[in-house]
Design a binder for these strands. Structure first.
Length: 569
RNA sequence: CGGGGUGUAGCGCAGUUGGUUCAGCGCGCAGCGUUUGGGACGCUGAGGUCGGUGGUUCGAAUCCACUCACCCCGACCA
């Protein structure tokens, strides 16, 4: 491809709207163009890379036994209402009304449609296991698109669905996909972490995410050095410490004038924060919830949401708290009636806690569960932090930020039951199909690849997903044969099946080199009067500092060799 | 949806005590010439209903009201 003909131009200045690195670079390289919030055009360079990613993914899906299909983007909302996920997705669903006043949604994912498909075509255990996938545009009306391609409203996703006769079958399918995903990231030249995850709105049981470590990532991964436990912070289990188990003492009211925070209470009464009980208030699907947790632990709203099985969760306002006749700053579940109380399991293992007195400026000493208060639900709702230790081995945690570039779920048979996707087993009994769901966002992976591979000059594409392999860079000079030889070499490289971006612009060396670095094409081949004197060209890898000369004679095969060696690594 | 911010040429910005040095600068773009191993230089030129609507005023990019769009921080996700 000739740079003079390429659609899309590089920019010197960083676009004001971008402050994520990948977003800046994608714009500066002329790879993408924004049309609306979270809606982008992919220009040729980006599209080339995306196609390469797509091909790697397709290849791995096929190898794992997936069959490619394509399903409608336009889906009747009734299908979503049947499974209850119209509610679960809520305003994320793009909805539209057709001329018959029928409501349709633009598919944010395809579990409903694919399950409906399976219900039609899968009747016998002989038809299973089955894996269907597609690579297609998804629509999600995200509340806040951000970071260029990191989080958008319209995006290409590979979504595969597995169908098995039982949980054991699902485990096998799940493992196959897990391995295929590992292969995909490796083949793209990227490092991704496999982490335990929460399943979110998709629902289901086991779930893993693939996270590309990146400073700008919005996900936090908790990682144990000793036993290699790796989980999303919103899911991570951790060691809450051994509480003192003294003999429960008699309850005792204390005056705590003007003291309303856990920190202040702990300081005032000279007890560690872990010896206090904190009260936090939420509104879950419109209902007030009283949450209690040990004073030193933060509440994990994801865990809480899962525990409550609610769609919408938010902190209660002060007015809402007072409305319940609760005293903010001195609240505890002792004697509270008519309010749902949810407790973190951390409060069950200790004794003689300090809790609020439910009167202004008053706290209570020696509070013990369940002697002094009851909770309707006691479970793990605490948020893990890097300072915590591993629940499995006690090892020290570490926290890593990253971008979620893949998510796989064990769905079970919830959807197949509600949509009637069943099969006749060998024993002649009708059973629901056991499903799994596996997704990768392609554009996000592209952006994440840039987040992971760049320097202050620009992108450093991993070879397998670079838009082109070679940047052919002649430094033209009148009265020399640079132009002529560059044309010849360009032809030879293309004949050899190499992907060449030919910088045929009449620009100064500085401009060309800077653009070559910005675009991040892996191998730069420079032809200049200087190299011609030695009957050679200069080759330089984007990721390396050193360059070397190669003879023009047989250059195409020499470069092909170089690329092949690099690919093998 | 809550909080913060920005809209002036393709990009980055100045101008915002209202008034023909207020419609400008840099980059980019077009033409000509000189340059050429890390973002060269000169000359010439094209390009903007100052986000939109309504108002105030003799006069609005500038003041007022409404509105739209986009970005950032939070709650959500591939």
């Amino acid at each position: 491809m000739r740079l003079t003909k390429l659609f899309g131009k590089t920019q010197r200045e960083i676009p004001a709207e971008a402050d994520t690195i990948s977003h800046q670079l994608l714009l500066r390289t002329g790879m993408i163009s924004q049309l609306a919030a979270g809606v982008y055009s992919y220009l040729p360079l980006a599209w080339h890379s995306l196609k390469k990613i797509e091909n790697i993914i397709r290849d791995e899906m096929d190898k794992a036994g997936g069959q490619e299909i394509t399903m409608p983007v336009l889906q009747p909302i009734e299908l979503w209402e049947k499974t209850g996920r119209a509610q679960a997705f809520g305003p994320i669903l793009f909805k539209l009304v057709d001329r018959r006043e029928r409501t349709l949604v633009l598919g944010p994912t395809h579990e409903e449609v694919v399950t409906d498909l399976a219900a039609h075509f899968t009747q016998s255990y002989r038809d299973l296991p089955l894996m269907l996938y597609q690579i297609q545009t998804k629509f999600r009306d995200e509340p806040r698109p951000r970071g260029g391609l990191i989080r958008v409203r319209e995006f290409m996703m590979k979504d595969l669905y597995s169908f098995d006769i039982d949980e054991a079958g699902l485990d096998i399918s799940y493992q196959k996909m897990l391995q295929a995903y590992k292969n995909i990231y490796a083949r793209c030249g990227l490092t991704a972490l496999l982490v335990e995850a929460d399943s979110g709105a998709i629902g289901g049981k086991d779930s893993h995410e693939f996270i590309l470590p990146a400073e700008s990532g919005e996900d936090e991964v908790i990682y144990c050095h000793d036993c290699k436990y790796t989980a999303n912070a919103e899911k991570a289990q951790f060691n809450k410490g051994k509480a003192k188990n003294d003999k429960p003492l008699r309850i005792e009211e204390m005056a705590t004038p003007g003291i309303a925070t856990i920190e202040a209470v702990a300081n005032f009464l000279k007890v560690p924060q872990s010896q206090t009980i904190k009260a936090v208030f939420y509104i879950a699907d419109g209902k007030f919830v009283f949450v209690v947790i040990r004073g030193d632990l933060p509440v994990n709203e994801i865990k809480l949401k899962n525990a409550l099985h609610c769609q919408e969760l938010r902190m209660a306002t002060e007015a809402e708290i007072i409305d319940q006749r609760i005293v903010p700053g001195a609240a505890s579940p002792i004697g509270i009636k008519g309010v749902k109380v949810v407790a973190d399991d951390s409060i069950t293992s200790g004794t003689n806690f300090v809790a609020g007195g439910n009167k202004p400026d008053t706290h209570i000493k020696n509070v013990n569960y369940p002697r002094d208060f009851k909770a309707e639900l006691v479970t793990d709702i605490a948020l893990a932090r890097a300072s915590d230790t591993c629940a499995k081995c006690g090892g020290k945690f570490q926290s890593i930020h990253g971008i979620e570039v893949g998510h796989i779920f064990k769905l079970g048979s919830f959807l197949s039951q509600t949509l009637g996707a069943s099969f006749i087993d060998a024993d002649g009994v009708s059973k629901p199909i056991v499903m799994g769901s596996y997704g990768i966002g392609l554009g996000r992976l592209l952006a994440a690849a840039i987040e992971q591979n760049h320097d202050d000059k620009g992108i450093i594409w991993p070879l397998p997903i670079a838009p082109y392999q070679i940047y052919l860079c002649p430094l033209y000079r009148d009265g020399t044969k640079v132009g002529e030889i560059a044309e010849k070499i360009n032809g030879e490289l293309e004949v050899a099946g190499l992907e060449v971006l030919f910088d045929d612009r009449q620009e100064s060396p500085g401009v060309k080199f800077n653009d070559a670095d910005l675009l991040g094409i892996p191998l730069r081949v420079t032809i200049s009067p200087r190299t011609l004197e030695k009957k050679s060209v200069e080759v330089k890898w984007r990721m390396e500092k050193e360059s070397k000369l190669l003879p023009i004679e047989g250059i195409a095969s020499a470069i092909k060799q170089l690329i092949a060696e690099k690919s093998a690594k």
